[in-house]
Design a binder for these strands. Structure first.
Lengths: 130, 130
DNA sequence: CAAATTGTTCTAGTCAACTAAGACACTAGC
DNA sequence: GCTAGTGTCTTAGTTGACTAGAACAATTTG
């Protein structure tokens, strides 16, 4: 059962955090079509956000066709986002873990790591020009 | 000269995006103490946000001691965040680029990649339990 | 069938983010 | 000294995010 977290200090609206976490879970294969999301009340209990906020997130996900809400029953996953095979994901994850280990050894913190990935993905080879 | 972007669709407040971009630039070594940030008016022209919004970002950075604003002159970097040596960063970046290349071959998109890194950094080995 | 559980809707309010516009104070360069 | 460029501040307003509380409708469970 997937568990959601809402971090109030990062600036991203709570409902978008929930949306993002569902998308991530779909990406990583933690959620698949047919799975049931935590109920609105469960998310409320776990994260402390207002039910309307959870509903807003779930409604967004429903709008893009990723989930389907069934009143009286729950909210179910309808589609997936993951595209790579589980085996490849496992392999890529292992490689990444190794890389992260090296990065940690070099003293990198989370923010460094995210920044570096951002730069690599942006293909920004001209980062610093001064 | 670092260039800021503000993406209106991601949900993160504009001012926080600016703060984040400065932090990233510091992390990656693109900005160093003594460097001047783009002027408020430059950021306004480039990103279309209101001057007050840029000021809010710069003030946040000033509050945590990363930059220093000099009226009439500009806003200057005062401290850095990067901790690893440039050589190591180059090495880690090259490795990460290689990994990303493999991930792309496997069909991963940005969101997959970010999700995977998030999971690895969270050390969450129990992702899916159902 | 009744109770429990689920999603759903509504109203009213607060707060943060952001904008527009204008003007001020200070610095830098000529 | 003057001009241009810099950060700074103020006021007033809009919008989005989020909350609280209550109640409803539908489904599930015993």
């Amino acid at each position: 059962m997937v568990e959601f977290r809402v971090d109030r200090s990062g600036g991203l609206p709570a409902y978008l955090q929930l949306v993002q976490q569902v998308r991530e879970a779909l990406r990583l294969g933690w959620l698949a079509p047919g799975d049931r999301l935590p109920t609105v009340r469960e998310v409320v209990a776990a994260s402390g956000v207002n039910p309307n906020t959870v509903l807003k997130a779930y409604r967004e996900l429903e709008l893009v066709g990723l989930v389907e809400a069934r009143q009286g029953s729950g909210t179910y996953v309808k589609a997936t986002l993951g595209t790579a095979s589980p085996e490849l994901m496992v392999e890529l994850r292992a490689q990444l873990e190794k890389w992260v280990h090296g990065a940690r050894q070099a003293g990198l913190e989370d923010e460094d790591i995210h920044a570096l990935l951002g730069a690599v993905l942006a293909g920004d080879m001209k980062g610093k020009e001064s």
